[in-house]
Design a binder for these strands. Structure first.
Lengths: 266, 266
DNA sequence: CAGTTATGTCCCGTTTAGCGGAACGATTCT
DNA sequence: AGAATCGTTCCGCTAAACGGGACATAACTG
Protein backbone atom coordinates (compact mmCIF):
# COMPACT_ATOMS: atom_id res chain seq x y z
CA UNK A 1 0.00 0.00 0.00
CA UNK A 2 0.94 3.66 -0.34
CA UNK A 3 4.49 4.65 0.63
CA UNK A 4 6.51 6.59 -1.85
CA UNK A 5 9.59 8.76 -1.84
CA UNK A 6 8.61 10.75 1.17
CA UNK A 7 8.00 8.17 3.83
CA UNK A 8 4.86 9.42 5.50
CA UNK A 9 1.83 11.45 4.48
CA UNK A 10 2.60 14.06 7.12
CA UNK A 11 -0.62 15.23 8.59
CA UNK A 12 1.79 16.78 11.06
CA UNK A 13 1.11 19.50 13.50
CA UNK A 14 -2.47 18.49 14.02
CA UNK A 15 -1.15 15.72 16.17
CA UNK A 16 1.32 17.71 18.19
CA UNK A 17 -1.34 20.21 19.12
CA UNK A 18 -3.68 17.51 20.33
CA UNK A 19 -4.23 17.97 24.03
CA UNK A 20 -5.13 14.51 25.18
CA UNK A 21 -2.39 11.95 25.51
CA UNK A 22 -4.77 9.24 24.43
CA UNK A 23 -5.74 10.94 21.22
CA UNK A 24 -2.16 11.78 20.53
CA UNK A 25 -1.27 8.14 20.91
CA UNK A 26 -4.08 7.14 18.64
CA UNK A 27 -3.01 9.60 16.00
CA UNK A 28 0.46 8.12 16.12
CA UNK A 29 -1.05 4.74 15.44
CA UNK A 30 -2.96 6.12 12.51
CA UNK A 31 0.20 7.50 10.97
CA UNK A 32 2.02 4.27 11.56
CA UNK A 33 -0.75 2.19 10.09
CA UNK A 34 -1.16 4.34 7.02
CA UNK A 35 2.49 3.98 6.23
CA UNK A 36 1.84 0.36 5.37
CA UNK A 37 5.26 -0.81 6.46
CA UNK A 38 7.64 -0.80 9.39
CA UNK A 39 8.23 2.72 10.65
CA UNK A 40 11.10 4.01 12.73
CA UNK A 41 10.96 6.40 15.63
CA UNK A 42 12.72 9.07 13.61
CA UNK A 43 10.20 8.84 10.81
CA UNK A 44 7.38 9.16 13.25
CA UNK A 45 9.03 12.18 14.80
CA UNK A 46 9.13 13.82 11.43
CA UNK A 47 5.56 12.88 10.61
CA UNK A 48 3.97 13.77 13.90
CA UNK A 49 6.26 16.55 15.15
CA UNK A 50 6.08 15.02 18.57
CA UNK A 51 9.07 15.18 20.94
CA UNK A 52 11.25 12.13 20.90
CA UNK A 53 10.72 10.95 24.48
CA UNK A 54 6.97 11.33 24.14
CA UNK A 55 6.87 9.18 21.05
CA UNK A 56 9.19 6.66 22.56
CA UNK A 57 7.07 6.33 25.64
CA UNK A 58 3.89 6.00 23.62
CA UNK A 59 5.31 3.36 21.35
CA UNK A 60 6.83 1.41 24.21
CA UNK A 61 3.45 1.41 25.89
CA UNK A 62 1.74 0.00 22.84
CA UNK A 63 4.47 -2.54 22.35
CA UNK A 64 4.19 -3.68 25.93
CA UNK A 65 0.46 -4.12 25.48
CA UNK A 66 0.80 -6.06 22.25
CA UNK A 67 -0.73 -3.45 20.01
CA UNK A 68 2.58 -2.89 18.32
CA UNK A 69 5.60 -5.05 17.74
CA UNK A 70 9.06 -4.42 16.42
CA UNK A 71 11.03 -5.73 13.56
CA UNK A 72 13.84 -7.96 14.64
CA UNK A 73 17.45 -7.00 13.94
CA UNK A 74 19.29 -3.72 13.82
CA UNK A 75 17.19 -0.74 12.86
CA UNK A 76 14.04 -1.97 14.52
CA UNK A 77 10.99 -0.31 13.10
CA UNK A 78 7.56 -0.56 14.65
CA UNK A 79 4.96 -2.79 13.06
CA UNK A 80 1.38 -3.63 13.86
CA UNK A 81 0.96 -6.09 16.68
CA UNK A 82 -1.36 -9.00 16.88
CA UNK A 83 -3.67 -7.36 19.34
CA UNK A 84 -4.23 -4.40 17.06
CA UNK A 85 -4.99 -6.74 14.17
CA UNK A 86 -7.56 -8.58 16.19
CA UNK A 87 -9.07 -5.31 17.28
CA UNK A 88 -9.33 -4.14 13.70
CA UNK A 89 -11.07 -7.29 12.64
CA UNK A 90 -13.56 -6.92 15.47
CA UNK A 91 -14.26 -3.37 14.41
CA UNK A 92 -15.12 -4.43 10.89
CA UNK A 93 -17.23 -7.29 12.11
CA UNK A 94 -19.26 -5.26 14.53
CA UNK A 95 -21.24 -3.65 11.77
CA UNK A 96 -24.72 -4.44 12.89
CA UNK A 97 -27.04 -1.52 12.73
CA UNK A 98 -24.43 0.67 11.07
CA UNK A 99 -24.43 -1.67 8.10
CA UNK A 100 -28.20 -1.44 7.90
CA UNK A 101 -28.17 2.33 7.89
CA UNK A 102 -25.37 2.46 5.39
CA UNK A 103 -27.27 0.04 3.18
CA UNK A 104 -30.42 2.11 3.33
CA UNK A 105 -28.44 5.23 2.49
CA UNK A 106 -26.74 3.44 -0.34
CA UNK A 107 -30.05 2.42 -1.82
CA UNK A 108 -31.42 5.93 -1.68
CA UNK A 109 -28.29 7.32 -3.27
CA UNK A 110 -28.45 4.84 -6.10
CA UNK A 111 -32.16 5.46 -6.62
CA UNK A 112 -31.95 9.19 -6.88
CA UNK A 113 -28.30 9.38 -7.95
CA UNK A 114 -27.50 12.24 -5.64
CA UNK A 115 -25.36 12.54 -2.56
CA UNK A 116 -27.22 11.84 0.68
CA UNK A 117 -26.28 12.21 4.29
CA UNK A 118 -27.51 11.43 7.74
CA UNK A 119 -26.83 14.04 10.38
CA UNK A 120 -27.52 14.94 13.98
CA UNK A 121 -27.26 18.09 16.02
CA UNK A 122 -24.58 17.99 18.66
CA UNK A 123 -23.83 20.92 20.89
CA UNK A 124 -25.37 23.31 18.44
CA UNK A 125 -23.57 22.14 15.33
CA UNK A 126 -24.46 19.70 12.62
CA UNK A 127 -22.52 16.44 12.61
CA UNK A 128 -22.66 13.79 9.92
CA UNK A 129 -23.38 10.29 11.09
CA UNK A 130 -22.88 8.99 7.60
CA UNK A 131 -22.56 10.37 4.13
CA UNK A 132 -22.55 8.74 0.72
CA UNK A 133 -21.59 10.54 -2.44
CA UNK A 134 -23.23 10.01 -5.76
CA UNK A 135 -20.80 9.34 -8.57
CA UNK A 136 -20.88 12.77 -10.15
CA UNK A 137 -17.68 14.54 -11.00
CA UNK A 138 -18.84 17.77 -9.39
CA UNK A 139 -18.85 17.18 -5.67
CA UNK A 140 -19.03 19.22 -2.54
CA UNK A 141 -15.91 18.52 -0.63
CA UNK A 142 -16.61 17.88 3.01
CA UNK A 143 -13.81 17.90 5.57
CA UNK A 144 -12.83 14.40 6.69
CA UNK A 145 -13.96 12.95 9.96
CA UNK A 146 -17.44 14.38 10.28
CA UNK A 147 -16.61 18.03 10.19
CA UNK A 148 -19.22 20.19 11.86
CA UNK A 149 -21.45 22.59 9.94
CA UNK A 150 -23.28 25.59 11.28
CA UNK A 151 -26.97 24.64 11.47
CA UNK A 152 -28.57 27.85 10.30
CA UNK A 153 -27.55 27.49 6.69
CA UNK A 154 -28.08 23.88 5.73
CA UNK A 155 -31.27 21.94 5.33
CA UNK A 156 -30.48 19.30 7.93
CA UNK A 157 -29.41 21.90 10.44
CA UNK A 158 -32.53 23.97 10.08
CA UNK A 159 -34.69 20.88 10.22
CA UNK A 160 -33.11 19.69 13.44
CA UNK A 161 -33.22 23.15 14.96
CA UNK A 162 -36.88 23.36 14.07
CA UNK A 163 -37.73 20.18 15.94
CA UNK A 164 -35.80 21.01 19.08
CA UNK A 165 -37.81 21.38 22.29
CA UNK A 166 -39.06 24.97 22.39
CA UNK A 167 -36.78 26.11 25.20
CA UNK A 168 -33.68 24.55 23.71
CA UNK A 169 -34.46 25.93 20.31
CA UNK A 170 -34.93 29.40 21.74
CA UNK A 171 -31.67 29.24 23.62
CA UNK A 172 -29.74 28.10 20.56
CA UNK A 173 -31.31 30.70 18.32
CA UNK A 174 -30.04 33.42 20.60
CA UNK A 175 -26.60 31.87 20.77
CA UNK A 176 -26.00 31.07 17.13
CA UNK A 177 -23.76 33.56 15.35
CA UNK A 178 -25.74 33.24 12.06
CA UNK A 179 -22.64 33.80 10.04
CA UNK A 180 -23.17 34.72 6.41
CA UNK A 181 -21.80 32.36 3.77
CA UNK A 182 -23.70 33.41 0.63
CA UNK A 183 -26.11 36.19 -0.15
CA UNK A 184 -28.89 33.73 0.60
CA UNK A 185 -27.80 32.72 4.06
CA UNK A 186 -30.43 33.58 6.63
CA UNK A 187 -28.74 35.93 9.05
CA UNK A 188 -31.79 37.43 10.69
CA UNK A 189 -33.07 35.74 13.80
CA UNK A 190 -36.70 36.57 13.19
CA UNK A 191 -36.55 35.31 9.61
CA UNK A 192 -34.83 32.14 10.72
CA UNK A 193 -37.42 31.58 13.40
CA UNK A 194 -40.34 31.81 11.03
CA UNK A 195 -38.47 29.58 8.62
CA UNK A 196 -38.18 27.01 11.40
CA UNK A 197 -41.89 27.23 12.12
CA UNK A 198 -42.60 26.73 8.46
CA UNK A 199 -40.32 23.68 8.44
CA UNK A 200 -42.21 22.05 11.29
CA UNK A 201 -45.43 22.57 9.39
CA UNK A 202 -44.40 21.24 6.00
CA UNK A 203 -42.24 18.48 7.44
CA UNK A 204 -39.08 19.13 5.48
CA UNK A 205 -36.36 21.73 5.11
CA UNK A 206 -34.48 23.13 2.15
CA UNK A 207 -31.19 24.88 1.70
CA UNK A 208 -31.26 26.94 -1.44
CA UNK A 209 -27.60 27.85 -1.83
CA UNK A 210 -27.49 29.24 1.68
CA UNK A 211 -24.17 27.69 2.55
CA UNK A 212 -22.40 27.13 -0.74
CA UNK A 213 -23.37 28.81 -3.99
CA UNK A 214 -24.52 26.21 -6.45
CA UNK A 215 -25.42 23.62 -3.85
CA UNK A 216 -28.97 22.91 -2.74
CA UNK A 217 -30.27 20.46 -0.14
CA UNK A 218 -33.52 19.00 1.03
CA UNK A 219 -33.83 17.32 4.42
CA UNK A 220 -36.51 15.21 6.07
CA UNK A 221 -36.73 14.13 9.71
CA UNK A 222 -35.72 10.72 11.02
CA UNK A 223 -37.87 9.76 13.97
CA UNK A 224 -37.55 7.12 16.63
CA UNK A 225 -40.45 4.91 17.65
CA UNK A 226 -41.83 7.61 19.91
CA UNK A 227 -41.97 10.06 17.06
CA UNK A 228 -39.13 12.24 18.32
CA UNK A 229 -36.94 13.72 15.63
CA UNK A 230 -33.50 12.29 16.26
CA UNK A 231 -31.67 12.87 13.01
CA UNK A 232 -32.02 14.31 9.53
CA UNK A 233 -31.74 12.59 6.19
CA UNK A 234 -30.81 14.93 3.39
CA UNK A 235 -30.09 14.96 -0.30
CA UNK A 236 -27.61 17.42 -1.65
CA UNK A 237 -26.65 18.33 -5.16
CA UNK A 238 -25.22 20.89 -7.47
CA UNK A 239 -28.05 23.15 -8.62
CA UNK A 240 -26.69 23.05 -12.16
CA UNK A 241 -27.70 19.43 -12.24
CA UNK A 242 -30.29 19.32 -9.49
CA UNK A 243 -32.41 22.44 -9.21
CA UNK A 244 -34.21 22.71 -5.93
CA UNK A 245 -37.50 21.97 -7.63
CA UNK A 246 -36.30 18.57 -8.69
CA UNK A 247 -34.75 17.85 -5.32
CA UNK A 248 -38.11 18.41 -3.72
CA UNK A 249 -39.55 15.64 -5.79
CA UNK A 250 -37.30 13.23 -3.94
CA UNK A 251 -39.02 13.93 -0.65
CA UNK A 252 -41.35 10.91 -0.69
CA UNK A 253 -38.41 8.58 -1.21
CA UNK A 254 -36.39 10.32 1.45
CA UNK A 255 -39.28 9.96 3.86
CA UNK A 256 -39.54 6.25 3.22
CA UNK A 257 -35.83 5.80 3.80
CA UNK A 258 -35.96 8.00 6.90
CA UNK A 259 -38.62 5.75 8.38
CA UNK A 260 -36.44 2.71 7.80
CA UNK A 261 -33.41 4.41 9.28
CA UNK A 262 -35.40 5.48 12.30
CA UNK A 263 -36.25 1.90 13.06
CA UNK A 264 -32.57 0.97 13.27
CA UNK A 265 -32.08 3.14 16.34
CA UNK A 266 -32.87 2.11 19.89
CA UNK B 1 -20.32 -11.85 17.53
CA UNK B 2 -21.59 -13.09 20.89
CA UNK B 3 -23.94 -10.77 22.78
CA UNK B 4 -26.79 -12.54 24.46
CA UNK B 5 -28.47 -12.30 27.81
CA UNK B 6 -25.46 -10.91 29.55
CA UNK B 7 -24.56 -7.85 27.58
CA UNK B 8 -20.78 -8.02 27.45
CA UNK B 9 -18.12 -10.68 27.68
CA UNK B 10 -16.70 -9.13 30.83
CA UNK B 11 -12.97 -9.33 30.75
CA UNK B 12 -13.36 -7.00 33.70
CA UNK B 13 -10.87 -6.09 36.31
CA UNK B 14 -7.91 -6.39 34.00
CA UNK B 15 -8.92 -3.07 32.60
CA UNK B 16 -9.53 -1.27 35.83
CA UNK B 17 -6.07 -2.22 37.05
CA UNK B 18 -4.43 -0.94 33.91
CA UNK B 19 -2.14 1.93 34.81
CA UNK B 20 -1.97 3.95 31.64
CA UNK B 21 -4.94 6.04 30.68
CA UNK B 22 -4.28 5.36 27.03
CA UNK B 23 -4.31 1.61 27.43
CA UNK B 24 -7.37 1.85 29.58
CA UNK B 25 -9.09 3.80 26.86
CA UNK B 26 -8.05 1.28 24.28
CA UNK B 27 -9.36 -1.56 26.36
CA UNK B 28 -12.68 0.21 26.61
CA UNK B 29 -12.79 0.37 22.84
CA UNK B 30 -12.03 -3.32 22.64
CA UNK B 31 -14.95 -4.14 24.87
CA UNK B 32 -17.24 -1.84 22.96
CA UNK B 33 -16.21 -3.26 19.64
CA UNK B 34 -16.63 -6.84 20.72
CA UNK B 35 -20.19 -6.19 21.74
CA UNK B 36 -21.12 -5.82 18.10
CA UNK B 37 -23.87 -3.33 18.75
CA UNK B 38 -24.57 0.01 20.38
CA UNK B 39 -23.41 -0.02 23.98
CA UNK B 40 -24.49 2.23 26.82
CA UNK B 41 -22.34 3.78 29.47
CA UNK B 42 -23.93 1.61 32.11
CA UNK B 43 -23.11 -1.55 30.24
CA UNK B 44 -19.53 -0.50 29.83
CA UNK B 45 -19.33 0.25 33.53
CA UNK B 46 -20.42 -3.26 34.25
CA UNK B 47 -18.04 -4.79 31.75
CA UNK B 48 -14.97 -2.76 32.56
CA UNK B 49 -15.49 -1.97 36.26
CA UNK B 50 -14.27 1.51 35.57
CA UNK B 51 -15.73 4.47 37.47
CA UNK B 52 -18.52 6.26 35.73
CA UNK B 53 -16.83 9.64 35.24
CA UNK B 54 -13.70 8.02 33.90
CA UNK B 55 -15.62 6.12 31.30
CA UNK B 56 -17.67 9.11 30.42
CA UNK B 57 -14.60 11.22 29.90
CA UNK B 58 -12.92 8.56 27.79
CA UNK B 59 -15.92 8.03 25.59
CA UNK B 60 -16.55 11.73 25.16
CA UNK B 61 -12.97 12.11 24.05
CA UNK B 62 -13.32 9.45 21.40
CA UNK B 63 -16.62 10.84 20.29
CA UNK B 64 -15.17 14.29 19.93
CA UNK B 65 -12.38 12.86 17.81
CA UNK B 66 -14.72 10.91 15.56
CA UNK B 67 -13.59 7.47 16.66
CA UNK B 68 -16.95 6.86 18.24
CA UNK B 69 -20.40 8.19 17.59
CA UNK B 70 -23.67 8.00 19.46
CA UNK B 71 -27.06 6.86 18.59
CA UNK B 72 -29.30 9.89 18.54
CA UNK B 73 -32.39 10.23 20.68
CA UNK B 74 -33.11 9.08 24.19
CA UNK B 75 -30.98 6.26 25.52
CA UNK B 76 -27.92 7.06 23.46
CA UNK B 77 -25.56 4.16 23.03
CA UNK B 78 -22.05 4.43 21.67
CA UNK B 79 -21.30 3.07 18.23
CA UNK B 80 -18.22 2.86 16.08
CA UNK B 81 -17.35 6.09 14.33
CA UNK B 82 -16.20 6.63 10.80
CA UNK B 83 -12.65 7.30 11.82
CA UNK B 84 -12.30 4.06 13.73
CA UNK B 85 -13.79 2.13 10.87
CA UNK B 86 -11.30 3.54 8.44
CA UNK B 87 -8.49 2.93 10.85
CA UNK B 88 -9.46 -0.72 11.18
CA UNK B 89 -9.40 -1.26 7.46
CA UNK B 90 -5.97 0.34 7.22
CA UNK B 91 -4.72 -1.96 9.94
CA UNK B 92 -5.93 -5.11 8.25
CA UNK B 93 -4.44 -4.05 5.00
CA UNK B 94 -0.98 -3.43 6.34
CA UNK B 95 -0.38 -5.44 9.48
CA UNK B 96 2.44 -7.90 9.77
CA UNK B 97 0.08 -10.73 9.02
CA UNK B 98 -0.95 -8.96 5.83
CA UNK B 99 2.46 -9.71 4.40
CA UNK B 100 2.04 -13.31 5.43
CA UNK B 101 -1.36 -13.48 3.83
CA UNK B 102 0.00 -11.98 0.68
CA UNK B 103 2.63 -14.69 0.56
CA UNK B 104 -0.04 -17.34 0.83
CA UNK B 105 -2.09 -15.60 -1.82
CA UNK B 106 0.90 -15.40 -4.09
CA UNK B 107 1.46 -19.10 -3.79
CA UNK B 108 -2.13 -19.93 -4.61
CA UNK B 109 -2.08 -17.62 -7.59
CA UNK B 110 1.07 -19.18 -8.93
CA UNK B 111 -0.31 -22.67 -8.35
CA UNK B 112 -3.58 -22.17 -10.14
CA UNK B 113 -2.51 -19.29 -12.36
CA UNK B 114 -5.66 -17.31 -11.81
CA UNK B 115 -6.39 -14.06 -10.04
CA UNK B 116 -7.26 -14.48 -6.37
CA UNK B 117 -8.52 -12.09 -3.76
CA UNK B 118 -9.21 -11.85 -0.08
CA UNK B 119 -12.22 -9.84 0.98
CA UNK B 120 -14.32 -8.88 3.99
CA UNK B 121 -17.74 -7.37 4.44
CA UNK B 122 -17.70 -3.83 5.75
CA UNK B 123 -20.96 -2.04 6.36
CA UNK B 124 -22.75 -4.38 4.03
CA UNK B 125 -20.41 -4.18 1.05
CA UNK B 126 -17.51 -6.26 -0.10
CA UNK B 127 -14.04 -4.81 0.40
CA UNK B 128 -10.80 -6.33 -0.75
CA UNK B 129 -8.11 -6.77 1.82
CA UNK B 130 -5.77 -7.94 -0.87
CA UNK B 131 -5.85 -9.00 -4.46
CA UNK B 132 -3.27 -10.60 -6.70
CA UNK B 133 -3.64 -10.84 -10.44
CA UNK B 134 -2.54 -13.74 -12.52
CA UNK B 135 -0.41 -12.75 -15.48
CA UNK B 136 -3.07 -13.12 -18.14
CA UNK B 137 -3.58 -10.35 -20.64
CA UNK B 138 -7.35 -10.35 -20.11
CA UNK B 139 -7.98 -8.88 -16.70
CA UNK B 140 -10.88 -7.51 -14.75
CA UNK B 141 -10.09 -3.95 -13.90
CA UNK B 142 -10.84 -3.19 -10.28
CA UNK B 143 -11.05 0.38 -8.99
CA UNK B 144 -8.15 1.45 -6.79
CA UNK B 145 -8.41 1.70 -3.04
CA UNK B 146 -10.44 -1.43 -2.59
CA UNK B 147 -13.57 -0.11 -4.18
CA UNK B 148 -16.64 -1.69 -2.70
CA UNK B 149 -18.68 -4.30 -4.55
CA UNK B 150 -22.32 -5.10 -3.98
CA UNK B 151 -22.42 -8.43 -2.15
CA UNK B 152 -25.35 -10.09 -3.90
CA UNK B 153 -23.60 -10.67 -7.18
CA UNK B 154 -20.12 -11.88 -6.41
CA UNK B 155 -19.02 -15.15 -4.92
CA UNK B 156 -17.24 -13.64 -1.92
CA UNK B 157 -20.14 -11.35 -1.18
CA UNK B 158 -22.70 -14.12 -1.22
CA UNK B 159 -20.48 -16.33 0.86
CA UNK B 160 -20.02 -13.68 3.53
CA UNK B 161 -23.70 -12.78 3.52
CA UNK B 162 -24.53 -16.44 3.92
CA UNK B 163 -22.47 -16.73 7.09
CA UNK B 164 -23.74 -13.60 8.79
CA UNK B 165 -25.61 -14.04 12.08
CA UNK B 166 -29.18 -14.94 11.18
CA UNK B 167 -30.79 -11.70 12.31
CA UNK B 168 -28.29 -9.50 10.58
CA UNK B 169 -28.44 -11.52 7.43
CA UNK B 170 -32.20 -11.24 7.40
CA UNK B 171 -32.18 -7.49 7.86
CA UNK B 172 -29.58 -6.98 5.19
CA UNK B 173 -31.41 -9.20 2.74
CA UNK B 174 -34.48 -7.04 3.08
CA UNK B 175 -32.51 -3.88 2.53
CA UNK B 176 -30.14 -4.80 -0.26
CA UNK B 177 -31.13 -3.25 -3.58
CA UNK B 178 -30.19 -6.38 -5.59
CA UNK B 179 -29.28 -4.30 -8.57
CA UNK B 180 -29.05 -6.17 -11.85
CA UNK B 181 -25.68 -6.20 -13.63
CA UNK B 182 -26.08 -9.08 -16.04
CA UNK B 183 -28.94 -11.34 -17.01
CA UNK B 184 -27.64 -13.80 -14.45
CA UNK B 185 -27.56 -11.49 -11.46
CA UNK B 186 -29.82 -12.76 -8.72
CA UNK B 187 -32.37 -10.02 -8.18
CA UNK B 188 -35.02 -11.98 -6.36
CA UNK B 189 -34.83 -12.02 -2.60
CA UNK B 190 -36.23 -15.50 -2.20
CA UNK B 191 -33.87 -16.92 -4.76
CA UNK B 192 -30.94 -15.20 -3.13
CA UNK B 193 -31.95 -16.51 0.25
CA UNK B 194 -32.08 -20.11 -0.87
CA UNK B 195 -28.78 -19.58 -2.66
CA UNK B 196 -27.29 -18.41 0.64
CA UNK B 197 -28.63 -21.47 2.43
CA UNK B 198 -27.16 -23.65 -0.25
CA UNK B 199 -23.81 -21.89 0.16
CA UNK B 200 -23.74 -22.61 3.87
CA UNK B 201 -24.40 -26.26 3.13
CA UNK B 202 -21.87 -26.84 0.41
CA UNK B 203 -19.26 -24.57 1.95
CA UNK B 204 -18.44 -22.46 -1.05
CA UNK B 205 -20.03 -19.88 -3.32
CA UNK B 206 -19.88 -19.27 -7.03
CA UNK B 207 -20.49 -16.28 -9.21
CA UNK B 208 -21.40 -17.41 -12.67
CA UNK B 209 -21.18 -14.17 -14.63
CA UNK B 210 -23.55 -12.50 -12.20
CA UNK B 211 -21.58 -9.29 -11.98
CA UNK B 212 -19.59 -9.07 -15.17
CA UNK B 213 -20.32 -11.07 -18.27
CA UNK B 214 -17.45 -13.38 -18.99
CA UNK B 215 -16.14 -13.42 -15.42
CA UNK B 216 -16.73 -16.28 -13.00
CA UNK B 217 -15.66 -16.65 -9.37
CA UNK B 218 -15.52 -19.28 -6.70
CA UNK B 219 -15.15 -18.32 -3.05
CA UNK B 220 -14.44 -20.32 0.11
CA UNK B 221 -14.69 -19.13 3.70
CA UNK B 222 -11.75 -18.04 5.83
CA UNK B 223 -12.38 -18.89 9.44
CA UNK B 224 -10.71 -17.84 12.65
CA UNK B 225 -9.86 -20.41 15.28
CA UNK B 226 -13.35 -20.27 16.67
CA UNK B 227 -14.76 -21.25 13.33
CA UNK B 228 -16.34 -17.87 12.64
CA UNK B 229 -16.26 -16.85 9.01
CA UNK B 230 -14.27 -13.64 8.91
CA UNK B 231 -13.26 -13.29 5.29
CA UNK B 232 -13.56 -14.89 1.89
CA UNK B 233 -10.87 -16.22 -0.39
CA UNK B 234 -11.88 -16.26 -4.03
CA UNK B 235 -10.52 -17.14 -7.42
CA UNK B 236 -11.71 -15.17 -10.38
CA UNK B 237 -11.19 -15.63 -14.06
CA UNK B 238 -12.46 -15.01 -17.55
CA UNK B 239 -14.83 -17.81 -18.45
CA UNK B 240 -13.28 -18.03 -21.89
CA UNK B 241 -10.20 -19.37 -20.20
CA UNK B 242 -11.62 -20.61 -16.93
CA UNK B 243 -15.10 -22.09 -17.21
CA UNK B 244 -16.87 -22.37 -13.88
CA UNK B 245 -16.46 -26.13 -13.96
CA UNK B 246 -12.72 -25.83 -13.93
CA UNK B 247 -12.73 -23.12 -11.31
CA UNK B 248 -14.61 -25.45 -9.01
CA UNK B 249 -11.77 -27.90 -9.21
CA UNK B 250 -9.62 -25.36 -7.46
CA UNK B 251 -11.74 -25.51 -4.32
CA UNK B 252 -9.55 -27.96 -2.41
CA UNK B 253 -6.51 -25.76 -2.94
CA UNK B 254 -8.45 -22.67 -2.01
CA UNK B 255 -9.64 -24.34 1.15
CA UNK B 256 -6.11 -25.24 2.15
CA UNK B 257 -4.96 -21.69 1.58
CA UNK B 258 -8.00 -20.33 3.40
CA UNK B 259 -7.10 -22.41 6.44
CA UNK B 260 -3.60 -20.96 6.40
CA UNK B 261 -4.90 -17.47 6.01
CA UNK B 262 -7.39 -17.99 8.79
CA UNK B 263 -4.57 -18.77 11.18
CA UNK B 264 -2.96 -15.42 10.46
CA UNK B 265 -5.93 -13.63 12.01
CA UNK B 266 -5.41 -13.76 15.79
C1' DC C 1 39.08 1.40 12.83
C1' DA C 2 38.70 5.95 15.08
C1' DG C 3 35.58 9.79 13.99
C1' DT C 4 31.10 11.40 12.93
C1' DT C 5 26.30 11.50 12.43
C1' DA C 6 21.89 9.74 13.06
C1' DT C 7 18.97 7.24 15.84
C1' DG C 8 17.22 5.07 20.02
C1' DT C 9 16.93 4.88 25.27
C1' DC C 10 16.87 6.72 29.85
C1' DC C 11 16.65 10.26 33.74
C1' DC C 12 14.20 13.42 36.45
C1' DG C 13 12.14 17.84 37.99
C1' DT C 14 7.92 20.15 36.46
C1' DT C 15 3.25 20.52 35.49
C1' DT C 16 -0.71 19.03 33.50
C1' DA C 17 -4.54 16.26 32.81
C1' DG C 18 -6.67 12.24 34.28
C1' DC C 19 -8.99 10.70 38.43
C1' DG C 20 -13.30 9.53 40.83
C1' DG C 21 -16.53 10.53 44.94
C1' DA C 22 -20.41 12.97 45.11
C1' DA C 23 -24.16 15.80 43.68
C1' DC C 24 -27.15 16.95 40.07
C1' DG C 25 -30.10 16.28 35.94
C1' DA C 26 -32.46 13.57 32.56
C1' DT C 27 -35.12 9.34 31.14
C1' DT C 28 -37.44 5.37 31.56
C1' DC C 29 -40.28 2.20 34.24
C1' DT C 30 -44.66 1.07 36.77
C1' DA D 1 -47.47 10.72 39.52
C1' DG D 2 -43.25 8.59 42.07
C1' DA D 3 -39.25 5.53 41.96
C1' DA D 4 -35.34 3.84 39.88
C1' DT D 5 -31.89 3.91 36.71
C1' DC D 6 -28.83 6.12 33.81
C1' DG D 7 -26.08 10.16 32.10
C1' DT D 8 -23.57 14.53 33.03
C1' DT D 9 -21.00 17.89 35.60
C1' DC D 10 -18.15 19.62 39.47
C1' DC D 11 -13.87 19.98 41.75
C1' DG D 12 -9.86 19.12 44.85
C1' DC D 13 -6.17 15.63 44.70
C1' DT D 14 -2.57 13.25 42.86
C1' DA D 15 -0.56 10.21 39.73
C1' DA D 16 1.03 10.20 35.22
C1' DA D 17 2.38 12.39 31.17
C1' DC D 18 5.69 15.74 29.67
C1' DG D 19 10.04 16.89 27.34
C1' DG D 20 14.84 19.06 27.76
C1' DG D 21 18.79 17.02 28.06
C1' DA D 22 22.33 13.41 28.68
C1' DC D 23 23.78 8.97 27.39
C1' DA D 24 24.00 4.72 24.51
C1' DT D 25 23.94 2.39 20.37
C1' DA D 26 23.96 1.60 15.63
C1' DA D 27 25.03 3.21 10.83
C1' DC D 28 27.96 5.77 7.63
C1' DT D 29 32.78 7.83 6.33
C1' DG D 30 37.27 8.24 5.00
Amino acid sequence: MSSGVLPLPTETAEIASETSSTLKAFAVLEVLVRAGRAVTLAELMQATELPKPTLHRTLALFEEAGFLAREPGGRRGYIIGERLSRFALDVLRSDGAAAERRTILRRVVSEITETCNLAVLKKGVLIYLDRLEAPWPLRLHVPEGGGALPPHCCASGKLLLAHLPAAERQRLLELLPLERFTERTITDRAVLESELDRIVNVGYAVDNEEYVLGVACVAVPVRNRHGDVIAALAVQGATARLPLMRAIEFIPRLRAAAAEIGSTFG
